[in-house]
Design a protein around this nucleic acid. Structure first.
Lengths: 168, 168
DNA sequence: GGAATCGTCTGCGAAGCACCAACTATTTAT
DNA sequence: ATAAATAGTTGGTGCTTCGCAGACGATTCC
């Protein structure tokens, strides 16, 4: 927690200050722009942006129970049911009862699901290009990397330089 | 600037290609997470996430007409009106008739607006910390930088490569 | 046996938003 | 000067998303 202070320190003595640089609004804005385009692109595939998000999360965080999923997506669990029903009807996911706790449904991406997700992502290229046009490929990759880390939670910092990292 | 690029560079040998790496879903997901938290934080300030987005865009892209704003936000212009009414009632923005074309309303952030926006951003620190906890300050700044460039359009397409348009 | 938990289903109500139509003020074209 | 186009405003309609609450069966834990 000392590293870049030297760099940021140019403007004031404040330790925390650093950024009014809040990303929330920008995130919101860009997400909307992409979502709008995604809807029309995804429609022929029988998917909606929300499904994509769910699939993406599932690919990243494999077989979890639904309430865990609800927590991750921060959606009401009753709405998760409907979402998963859609996906299961299309055989993109599977619900299997957990052996350890048979109340639980372990949700997992099927092969079809992974395939469809890839297709969808591929189809979205154009949409993203429009919105992220100001960024070159390297920057987009960086962006993806950052978003992915933020989304999948902390963890992975170990292997990278900042062994200690995140003193939270 | 290069520090984290080098750091991120560890995983892929290829600079480009690859990307099934679509950021759309992640963007969506994170935006949602932040928005949920923002709502409660912003409520006492009499603002909603959507207002924040508008103010942010206005700060970045100053005095534009409302239809230009509608285009940027990709919202129906009739809904923009209501949004701006809210903000004007709180005196966070001003509508002035454009001298050149008096049909136009030039929308601009007031001093109060800029101040309130800063306050709001400050108040959002906690919310973002929760969501972006996996990223260290440098990375968050990078993220902000990228999002900001993507959002403000950056226009620069001319000076950059894509004169021919993105040969994907 | 009784309480708590997971998933499911149903329905209600609020909010966001696109769309349509009508109207005013102003500019531009003929 | 008249007509057409443009910017903004207002009101209304309807769809979709989503949180929330209630009820239920299945299962686990004490």
């Amino acid at each position: 927690m000392f590293r870049q202070l030297g760099r940021l320190g140019h403007m004031s003595a404040q330790p925390l200050d650093s950024s009014e640089h809040r990303s929330g609004a920008l995130l919101d804005h860009l997400a909307r722009r992409i979502r709008l385009r995604s809807e029309s692109v995804l429609a022929p595939l029988g998917l909606r942006p929300r499904h994509l998000v769910a699939l993406t999360v599932l690919r990243a965080g494999g077989g979890t129970g639904q309430q865990a999923l609800a927590a991750t997506l921060e959606m009401d669990s009753t709405n998760i049911v409907g979402l998963l029903n859609d996906l299961e009807a299309k055989q993109l996911i599977e619900r299997r009862r957990s052996p350890e706790d048979r109340r639980r449904h372990v949700v997992e991406l099927t092969e079809d699901g992974a395939k469809r997700l890839s297709e969808a992502e591929c189809a979205l290229a154009g949409a993203e290009d429009e919105v992220l046009g100001a960024l070159n490929p390297v920057e987009r990759e960086t962006l993806y990397e950052l978003l992915n880390r933020a989304a999948t939670g902390t963890v992975n910092c170990a292997e990278v330089i900042c062994g200690t990292d995140d003193p939270r």
